[in-house]
Design a protein around this nucleic acid. Structure first.
Length: 769
DNA sequence: CCTTCCACTTAGGAAAAAGGGC
DNA sequence: GCCCTTTTTCCTAAGTGGAAGG
């Protein structure tokens, strides 16, 4: 059949590329394997039978795992290839037309000049977002208009009067939020803050409420940018003479550079990965490269190197640091604060904005995650001569450290970074950028959620489309249809192609045949696909999913005549997958599904789990459970805390004790009741009431503890932070908090509140994702 | 088209700080 | 106040996806 042949040919092609890689497939275990709860060793097919067990160990059982996009999915939707027609594209014409967010090029000729920018801001001044009719941070830039395709209706971009009105009223309305902010937040924390940073005035009036201004241009990120440049890592402090390095039993005095690298290794001695062959080899090779000729001549084998004294020295040093007096610690802290004051902020368009990572990464040994082929390589010290500075021409240009020069100083306002350098491990650029609380990051974040909300509007059509593709005559379309289905249903990542120089991890498009097992029937379910692969950060994804019959059939077809190392989706790449998605909805890419499904899941779960008569603690548990459902969907895992069992046991003991107390109190209560009945008096009545209250209080305490226990148990290997920070539209949370009278501080900590200030300010309880 | 480069978001673990029981 | 646990912050690796280059 044509269909199969096509697929197979291409599969070969991709396979050839892969051949080079093959050799390393033999062992891909996670670093933590040796721990009792470590994730299981993953490799090609052979090891798969035992993976079921490990799944349970890792705590993410398929039973718990959520699937997004399940609602309304009809199994085995009839799909006639001939019925595919252009109208598929148009079916979502009911949805609002979108600005082609991502079609814009940001080449220099398209940059806006200042004048244009000003006009833009004026024009958009009142074009704020609204909860009911949200369109997020929109762009109405002249460049956009030029670029817009014919099918876009110009009118849609204009700020509509309707919207404007609604917004202003909404921004006035949430009195409650203002109150909470004043009483809770401003009351305690900001006072503390003010104490520390004496020169900082009223935080509230000081803060830049950029979300109340019109959205600025996409291509031009700033008009003016000034900063102090990066902060360089402190210079190397040589070891004292009484800390020797031994080679082959003989003390050897190393040159400064060689010694520094030796200390990197010595500091890591306790870590399991220094025992890995790749780590040792990479380290030793790179180390020798930095040695003097004499040293290189002498030091030929790592196993003859004795770093133990150096190691001990650093252990002692850190011990010393721990035992410092309060005063000493205070001095250090003030020093750090001064540093932040000086280097930690920049001036962006007249506003002081926090920088995310103003400290340059110090030199050290690279440790990738998972089985990284480059683990142990030397990460070199960054010199000013490596650093490119980006700031505005009219700003005070940061000075390079004495005796040094910057690599370059540029004035590129189409990018958001303040400084960049080439990192030597992969030869890729790294950047100094702003903190998530900044306008630049916040606006982008807001826009991300708006794109996801647009997907909500047209997701039905897209789902219909990919189901139709399952029966397409073209292999490519079928593969794409199934791939998008996985991305939608399972929240898989796109899966760009990777080079051999990194750990072997995959996403949807890079899945290989060996990563799935098809079960015609499994545990009473039909058409089950068993996934087992390492995803980003070498986190294992293990899941058994029943799928539609047609998907199952297709998968069978895709793996036919392929080797385990061949790509499952050999006819597609993330590039053409995203291209297709973009045609369905401007701005749509694979990752939008993760955001969309995560946020949708949160909202649904919150609606389902929250009851009005719940106590505050119960509500918080509900929130955490909703959050957890998302984390499970997105496979956000963490290593079980080292002290998990112990702390769990402690908690259980506490609960037991509480129960005993309750028994005791109940006995006393009974006694009091009897006493009161026999000889009623004011005194006996009071005692009775007192005992009643005691029992009640204890019961409440018990419940609280039990809630805590549940929460902790369920959270053993689940990381909630990642989804909270990156996938869940903060407005859902803010609205929920307002609706159910939960102080936002109970859900978001300081950092999170800073990042989501925009959402906290603009959202009322009626917000719907 | 494919490859490479670039800019930016997303990620888990380690270190530091805060909280809470004694 | 001290010590241990828990939470927060810091750190930087590892993804995504657009655009340039060949």
């Amino acid at each position: 059949m044509k269909l199969e042949m096509e697929g197979h040919e291409k599969s070969r092609a991709k396979h050839d590329r892969r051949e080079k890689k093959k050799s390393k497939h033999s062992s891909k275990d996670r670093g933590k394997d040796s721990e009792p709860n470590g994730k299981h060793k993953h490799s090609s097919k052979k090891t798969q039978p035992d993976s079921g067990e490990c799944k349970q160990e890792s705590g993410v059982s398929s039973g718990v795992r959520c699937e997004a996009g399940d609602a309304g999915m009809d199994v085995d939707a009839p799909a006639d290839p001939d019925e595919r027609s252009p109208h598929d594209r148009q079916q979502k014409s009911g949805a609002p037309e979108l600005i082609p967010l991502k079609t814009q090029s940001k080449s220099s000729k398209e940059r806006l000049n200042h004048k244009e920018k000003k006009e833009l801001n004026l024009k958009n001044q009142s074009n704020k977002d609204s909860n009911q009719e949200p369109d997020g941070p929109r762009v109405t830039s002249p460049t956009k208009l030029k670029k817009r395709r014919v099918k876009d209706e110009p009118d849609k971009d204009e700020p509509s009067g309707k919207k404007r009105k609604k917004q202003s009223s909404e921004n006035d309305k949430p009195e409650k939020s203002k109150k909470i902010k004043k009483e809770g937040d401003a009351g305690e924390e900001e006072k503390k803050e003010k104490g520390k940073k004496a020169d900082k005035k009223d935080e509230d009036s000081d803060k830049w409420k950029w979300w109340e201004e019109g959205k600025s241009s996409d291509s031009q990120k700033w008009s003016r940018l000034e900063h102090r440049g990066p902060y360089f890592a402190p210079e190397y402090e040589p070891l004292p003479d009484n800390v020797p390095f031994y080679y082959d039993g003989q003390p050897v005095k190393l040159s400064l550079a060689t010694e520094e690298i030796a200390t990197f290794y010595a500091k890591m001695l306790e870590h399991e990965y220094t025992s890995k062959e790749a780590f040792q080899n990479n380290f030793f090779t790179d180390w020798r490269e930095e040695m003097t000729k004499e040293e290189r001549k002498l030091i030929k084998t790592l196993s003859k190197c004795d770093f133990s004294h150096i190691h001990k020295y650093f252990v002692e040093k850190s011990e010393e640091r721990k035992n410092m007096t309060k005063e000493e610690k205070q001095v250090l802290k003030e020093e750090a604060n001064r540093l932040i004051e000086e280097y930690g902020y920049c001036l962006l368009d007249g506003h002081r904005e926090k920088i995310g990572n103003f400290k340059l990464e110090p030199p050290g040994l690279f440790r990738g995650r998972g089985e990284h082929p480059k683990m142990g390589k030397l990460k070199k010290r960054i010199q000013p001569e490596d650093v490119t500075i980006n700031c505005s021409e009219d700003s005070k240009i940061p000075e390079a450290p004495a005796g040094h020069k910057w690599k370059r100083v540029v004035h590129d306002n189409t990018v958001t970074w303040l400084a960049s350098w080439l990192e030597n491990i992969h030869g890729r650029l790294k950047y100094i950028m702003l903190n998530p609380s900044s306008k630049l990051k916040g606006e982008k974040d807001w826009q991300k959620y708006e794109t996801a909300r647009q997907l909500k509007v047209c997701v039905d059509g897209i789902r219909k489309q990919y189901k139709r593709d399952w029966t397409s005559r073209e292999m490519k379309s079928r593969q794409r249809g199934v791939a998008i289905y996985f991305i939608d249903k399972l929240a898989l990542r796109a899966g760009n192609e990777k080079d051999d120089e990194s750990a072997d991890t995959v996403g949807c498009c890079s899945l290989r045949v060996e990563h799935i097992t098809l079960h015609r029937r499994l545990d009473g379910l039909e058409h089950v696909v068993e996934f087992d692969f390492l995803g980003k950060d070498s986190i294992r994804y293990y899941n058994k999913v029943p799928v539609e019959k047609q998907v199952f059939k297709n998968l069978k077809l895709f793996i036919k005549h392929k080797d385990p190392e061949d790509d499952l989706f050999d006819r597609i790449t993330t590039v053409n997958l995203n291209k297709t998605l973009n045609e369905s909805m401007p701005g749509l890419t694979a990752k939008v599904f993760r955001t969309f499904n995560a946020s949708t899941t949160l909202q649904d779960q919150l609606n389902k789990l929250t009851k009005d008569d719940m106590t505050l603690e119960e509500k918080i548990l509900s929130y955490n459970r909703a959050n957890r459902a998302v984390a499970i969907l997105c496979n956000h895992q963490r290593a079980a805390p080292k002290t998990f069992e112990k702390s769990m046991q402690l908690l259980q003991e506490k609960i037991q004790k509480k129960k005993e107390q309750i028994e005791e109190a109940k006995k006393e209560l009974k006694e009091a009741k009897r006493a009161h009945k026999e000889a009623p008096s004011d005194k006996s009545k009071k005692l009775l009431e007192k005992k009643e209250k005691l029992v009640q209080r204890l019961c409440e305490q018990l419940k609280k503890l039990q809630l805590q226990e549940t929460d902790r148990e369920e959270n053993k290997v689940i990381a909630l932070g990642t989804s909270k920070l990156n996938y869940l539209d903060p407005r859902i949370t803010v609205a929920w908090c307002k609706k159910h009278n939960v102080p936002i501080e109970k859900i978001y900590n300081k950092t999170q509140r800073d990042k989501f200030t925009w959402a906290i300010h603009m959202t009322d309880e009626h917000f719907q994702f």
